[in-house]
């Protein structure tokens, strides 16, 4: 069966076979990568005097974490935080509510083709547009404030949840769904008994995860005027009030940690 004999191998050097077999492609890729990296790093301009000046500030900022100032801009921080939380909660709830029909529509195994294409289109659009860019447009259209942030986050939630939900539905067990269909159930009954129980646990888990993401995102929307704690943070940086900025960042980190912990607990309970 094998035409390799021991004598052919003995005394010959051995080399690990290359991951990319074709030497032209291999060297082409290696050289291409090296050329790219050297050009890319070459095009970076570093203003060293500005950096050395900045290092002091950087150190001050790190030191500020030891003495975060929650008080002197206390009301700003509190209002910003409440606004962020409000945006997070509303946009997650609305996002989930809209994601469910779109997610159902984007699953090829239960939706007819035209509905499928429309829903997939909405998902693709929502995923392609960065939250910040959507927020800029929303602020331009709806004016400054949390409403723009709320709409942005809801829109982003749709792309995330509906996509994962649709994939989940497409992966579900056909047998269970068919069993329900064979009882003569209507379409809604079929969804309720055949599809929902299979998809629900993961949907709850993903929703919790999205709540966490929405909070993190809500912290930056303020930079473009769409409400939340980002505006306060931006002001703090502009005025070089690093101790206030440190306080805000610590609050964000702590909140994210709590949310992550909670979502872990809930996900364990559901699954």
């Amino acid at each position: 069966m094998s035409d390799v004999t021991l004598d052919m191998r003995l005394g010959k050097p051995w080399k690990k076979p290359h991951f990319i077999k074709n030497p032209v492609t291999r060297w082409g890729l290696i050289i291409g990568a090296l050329v790219y990296i050297s050009f890319a790093t070459g095009s970076l301009e570093v203003n060293w005097s500005r950096v050395s000046e900045g290092l002091v500030r950087g150190w001050n900022f790190i030191a500020a974490f030891a003495t975060p100032d929650f008080v002197s801009r206390g009301t700003d921080i509190r209002d910003g935080l409440i606004e962020s939380v409000i945006m997070t909660i509303t946009s997650t709830i609305v996002g989930i509510a809209i994601s469910i029909p779109i997610g159902l529509g984007a699953a090829r195994n239960i939706a007819p083709l035209p509905v499928y294409l429309v829903c997939r289109g909405i998902i693709a659009l929502s995923r392609a547009l960065n939250e910040i860019i959507v927020a800029i447009l929303m602020v331009a259209i709806f004016g400054f404030g949390p409403l723009a942030g709320f709409i942005t986050l809801s829109f982003a939630t749709i792309g995330f949840l509906a996509k994962l939900m649709a994939e989940d539905i497409e992966d579900m067990s056909r047998v269970q769904a068919e069993a329900i269909k064979s009882t003569g159930a209507t379409w809604t009954q079929w969804i309720n008994y055949g599809v929902q129980p299979q998809v629900m646990p993961r949907l709850v888990g993903l929703s919790m995860y999205r709540l966490d993401i929405n909070f993190r995102e809500s912290a930056v929307l303020g930079l473009v005027g769409a409400g939340g704690i980002g505006a306060t943070l931006n002001t703090a940086f502009d005025r070089y009030e690093f101790d206030t900025a440190a306080a805000i960042l610590l609050i964000i980190i702590a909140t994210v940690m709590v949310l992550e912990y909670l979502s872990g607990v809930i996900r364990k309970k559901v699954q």
Binding site: M1, S2, D3, V4, T5, L6, R9, L10, W14
Partner: peptide, 11 residues
């Protein structure tokens, strides 16, 4: 290679 040959897996 000798061992691989011995256990029959040279190829």
């Amino acid at each position: 290679f000798r061992l691989l040959d011995r256990v029959g897996l040279l190829a």
